[in-house]
């Protein structure tokens, strides 16, 4: 359990963010994820792939939280900028912009595609493990990845055409 936390805690944080969890909720949900992990350690023994498995837990925890938060999304929008500024460094502004873009792009993907895209393109988890964690056939996972890429590339090109001189 500690090994999982030490090794993959940061991954869980990233995943939760990608899943739309607010900064201010991250502590709680990170903790909740690992409480679930604790309860399901035996499941992990069975499945082997740690990160993909952790991600599947993240999706459930984040989804449950988002359902609750959805009803007050105006408030969330009001809070977000403030929370996002947390721990920011001036010299990291560019990184943060890139990060924000990354999150925005992921948010625009349908959930199924986003999961695959995130795990494959960003976390570089083998597709077989992703498919296993998401409970879908391998070919479906590839198909989602392809669609996600198309969509994201389109979005990026659109954004670039709208703000050509942004720098």
């Amino acid at each position: 359990m500690r090994a999982l936390f030490d090794e993959h805690g940061a991954f869980v944080c990233r995943s939760l963010r990608v899943l739309g969890v607010r900064e201010q909720d991250l502590d709680d949900l990170l903790q909740e994820v690992f409480l679930v992990v604790y309860q399901r350690l035996h499941d992990y023994e069975e499945r082997g792939s740690a990160r993909a498995w952790l991600y599947s837990i993240c999706t459930r925890v984040a989804r449950a939280q988002r359902r609750r938060a959805w009803r007050r999304r105006e408030e969330i929008r009001a809070e977000l900028p403030e929370a996002a500024v947390e721990a920011s460094q001036h010299q990291r502004v560019v990184d943060r912009e890139a990060l924000a873009l990354g999150h925005e792009l992921l948010e625009r993907l349908p959930r199924d595609q986003r999961d695959v895209f995130w795990l494959y393109e960003v976390e570089e988890i083998p597709m077989a493990e992703i498919a296993q964690a998401l409970g879908c056939p391998l070919q479906t996972a590839y198909s989602r990845l392809r669609k996600a890429r198309e969509r994201i590339l389109t979005e990026v090109q659109l954004a670039a055409s709208q703000e050509p001189d942004h720098a």
């Binding site: 944080c13 721990a87 090109q157």
Partner: peptide, 28 residues
Amino acid sequence: PPALSRALDALRKGGDDRARLERVGARL
């Protein structure tokens, strides 16, 4: 596209969660 590469790279790095992990680790 470079913008996408940067975005993916930023996502890969994520934020600095060391302090968060310490906090939550202590709570757990």
